[in-house]
Write a protein that binds this DNA or RNA. Structure first.
Lengths: 336, 336
DNA sequence: CTGAAAGCGCTAACAA
DNA sequence: TTGTTAGCGCTTTCAG
């Protein structure tokens, strides 16, 4: 009648069998007689028994758990990626331990350290801000899969990304096709994904012989970042007629800034984002964007991790997805 | 030279001390000589030692971990609540284990079961869909804090919520003040928060002698749910001139539906949401809404949980926050 | 099919 | 101060 939680030992006593038999029965081992199994299951449920994951993980020397770090829960695109990750991880009988570092490298590192203390068997990084060296250090301990970036290379790191340079070119080419020349770019800040998108912008502008109009305004991957940067961009004289914004959530902010300044989208200024955020599809936003297959990328990332887990000799995969232009209502033919 | 992870034992050997001394040193015990401590720390870092949380939790009989269930990662308001939860939990030296059940009761229950297997010491539910009986069952095992709902009552359950009935009244009263009479409500589906908001709508409509115009269209707490329900609402003849939508994300969907049907917000139809989603503040959405202090609620929920953890005799707190009308651009004076 | 025994990595008395 | 000794709850040989 102890107040503390029932253990496998209590269940055994109640069912009149030994500890080890309970352990076997609980894990569906075939070498338990139906009678014993029934007695054990009954005893367990009567007692409200719940297996202790810490003890199991200790004895088993495996946690059957994958650690997942996500950049920022405020951007709904990460929920889309997570959908894919969770589905895949669960289908392998593993649990996910989800943490976020709020876009801060030090916090990210601390959270990963904790994950590793919990003995996660693998790590999935859904956009991170830690240095490559730090990530590589972690990769010495467990297999790692990185989603949305392809630049970190290590034998124990798999990556799933889309070609950001190509995607950015797609965006600019679309704008050029619509007759825009004064196309500014609102960047996403100091990170590699941003750098690639900016690079794609520059390449495409050059190809279109628009070097003279190249204009990059530093922003951030947030609604507010996009808002502020768009205000800056609009203040130029002459003002741009089109904005390629580094991601969708910042594009939403940019639209706000444009409308606030009395201009309208897309009549006065065209806007194109990046990511394929589900919310962006709504008519009230109706955002033209470069979409990545987010959920699929999550799934592939998890799958690559398990491939490594199941066969450590197999080299880590690097998968590049194709970004796709989704033409909606925030881009239109240039007027003047 | 084993390939497996270094243990406290390896560290002890390398530092030339005993296992228990290492354990003490690692946990900043004052009863370790500076010399030993230095040697131990050096050995630990040379070996890349990382304490095994499973083993510690087993021996310690506490995990120093709180389980957090969140309804749906796709709605950014939960990130706002989580900010408060995480801050508070970390300040107590605990870790959070975050899971989501994708709005599905069975998945939620399975995830909580796992959390409990991991020996979390407390549970924070940020909107859930499980039955009260299920939640109460969990509350028999660990203290529980429920955020956004106040209806589940149990000695081991603390709640932090806003007064949804009052908030809904605020919304309707605002619309009435603007001269609207044909005010429809888009509900959030089959859950208690929705029920309360609908109840507040009905009360306020009655107070305003608008019973004849009462109209509730079943929706959901998602952008798509709001979109579809708004289409239905607009099909009525005469159509409503104002919509009180059960939450902000659904309101964004509703706006899309209205604009798509050729009407404009707020000139033809006023829209008011509920929650105070950060994104809604942007000019491009500029959503009038009833705001709850989300981050603060997260913090208070966690705080209530720790109060219980630290003093199990203290009764569970039930905190009700005040909802607040934020007047922005999606509501205007009724025309006809 | 079943039970006894050892041990996973760590903490916590208790001695020394 | 430091080392020794028991477990924490579970899995897993290895004999019956």
């Amino acid at each position: 009648m102890s107040a503390s939680k029932p253990t496998i030992h209590d269940v055994a006593a109640r069912a009149g069998v030994s500890k080890s038999l309970v352990s076997l029965a609980l894990r569906q081992s075939p070498k338990v007689s139906p009678a014993s199994r029934a007695a054990i299951l009954a005893a367990a449920s009567e007692l409200g028994y719940r297996t202790n994951a810490a003890a199991r993980s200790l004895a088993d020397r495996r946690s059957r758990t994958i650690g997942v770090l996500v950049l920022d829960l405020h951007n709904p695109i990460f929920a889309q990626i997570l959908d894919g990750v969770q589905t895949e991880v669960r289908s392998h009988g593993y649990s996910v331990m989800l943490v976020t570092g709020n876009s801060d490298p030090a916090t990210e590192q601390a959270e990963i350290d904790k994950l590793l203390e919990f003995q996660v068997e693998g790590l999935i990084l859904i956009s991170h801000r830690m240095s490559d060296a730090t990530v590589r250090e972690f990769a010495r301990e467990v297999p790692v899969a990185i989603i949305t970036r392809q630049d970190v290379s290590d034998s124990n790191i798999a990556t799933v990304s889309n070609d950001d340079i190509r995607g950015a070119q797609l965006a600019v080419e679309h704008l050029v096709r619509l007759g825009h020349t004064r196309i500014a770019h609102i960047s996403g800040g100091e990170n590699t994904v941003s750098a690639d998108r900016e690079r794609g912008y520059r390449i495409a502008m050059s190809h279109a012989k628009l070097d003279a109009h190249m204009c990059v305004v530093p922003g951030a991957f947030t609604d507010l970042g996009g808002y502020n940067a768009a205000r800056t961009a609009l203040a130029a004289d002459p003002a741009p007629t089109a904005l390629f914004v580094a991601n969708d959530i910042a594009a939403v902010g940019a639209i706000a800034a444009i409308e606030e300044s009395g201009l309208s989208v897309p009549d006065d200024v065209s806007i194109i984002g990046y990511d394929g955020m589900a919310l962006g599809a709504l008519r009230s936003l109706n955002l033209t964007t470069i979409a990545q297959p987010l959920t699929e990328m999550g799934q592939l990332g998890a799958r690559a991790l398990f491939a490594r887990l199941e066969n450590p000799d197999e080299p880590s995969a690097h998968t590049a997805m194709n970004p796709e232009l989704i033409e909606r209502g925030t881009t239109a033919v240039a007027v003047q």
